[in-house]
């Protein structure tokens, strides 16, 4: 196979992928300039690139980024504290776990973000709504993975703890919790992704706050290059966010 030989050359597939991306951007530029694609519907990539500076300076992109980041941060703290403690509680009280675990799993697959009008009524059009919405959406995977991690602790480790006559709390903090860390972080990773998606999404939907609102604002002003630039920026932010979380996860994962 010729192709699989090519795939083995380091960097070549990535270069090819990137090349295709660049070529398609150029193709868009040419098609729009030639009038094949209406430039009032799709702005030229060069226009989008040029409007980045304007969006950063005039629309206070960085302050909005900080605001969105803060909302994510508060929601992340909430999902970590509440999710891990609820997970630990359910692990400890087996009856409660058996009664509610399927409910939590169902909640994880339910479209919770659609409750945002409800949250809007309860918390008003404020950052609290955004944070609470992100918290509710990000919570179930943290609970589920905490239970999974704690129950998956290796028997040997627990026996070591027993042989040292550890108390219940020592057992939890010195054996169970550290052993469950990598799995808990998988849950946190999922939870944090949901958190970011929900923060930006709800900001956009209720037209309040940071980056999500910026996109809504620019679109309502019919500032097309600005809208596209802001969307590119949000994608960039979420990709960076995702890569960073993944790095941390890989760092925490034990080498097997």
């Amino acid at each position: 196979m010729n192709r699989s030989a090519l795939a083995r050359i380091p960097g070549l597939p990535a270069l090819f992928g990137f090349g295709c991306l660049v070529v398609s951007i150029l193709a868009f530029e040419i098609l729009i300039r030639a009038g094949v694609i209406n430039r009032f519907i799709v702005p030229m990539p060069s226009q989008i690139a040029a409007s980045f500076e304007r969006v950063i300076i005039e629309e206070h992109l960085l302050e909005r980024f900080v605001l969105t980041f803060k909302e994510c941060f508060y929601a992340a703290i909430l999902i970590t504290l509440v999710g891990v403690s609820l997970g630990a509680l359910l692990h400890r009280v087996d009856l409660l776990r058996r009664a509610t675990e399927t409910w939590v799993a169902a909640a994880a697959s339910a479209p919770t973000v659609l409750m945002y009008p409800l949250f809007l009524v309860i918390f008003g059009r404020s950052s609290t709504t955004i944070i609470m919405m992100a918290f509710v959406a990000g919570l179930p995977p943290v609970i589920l993975k905490t239970i999974e991690g704690l129950s998956g602790t290796r028997r040997v480790l627990i026996n070591v703890g027993r042989s040292f006559n550890l108390t219940q709390s020592q057992m939890f903090w010195k054996i169970l919790f550290p052993a469950a860390m990598p799995t808990i972080f998988v849950g946190l990773k999922l939870g944090l992704i949901f958190t970011l998606i929900n923060v930006v999404g709800v900001e956009f939907l209720i037209n309040f706050g940071g980056l999500g609102q910026l996109i809504n604002d620019l679109a309502e002003r019919y500032d097309l290059p600005g809208t596209y630039a802001a969307i590119c920026f949000v994608i960039l932010v979420s990709v960076v966010f995702f890569v960073v979380i993944e790095r941390i996860e890989r760092w925490l994962r034990p080498a097997d």
């Binding site: 699989s4 992928g17 295709c20 992704i193 998606i197 956009f204 994608i235």
Partner: peptide, 18 residues
Amino acid sequence: RFMGKAFEPYLYYLGPTP
């Protein structure tokens, strides 16, 4: 394998964006 290596990272990282 070639196409996977070339394009899958884009899908993988675009997947979880809002």
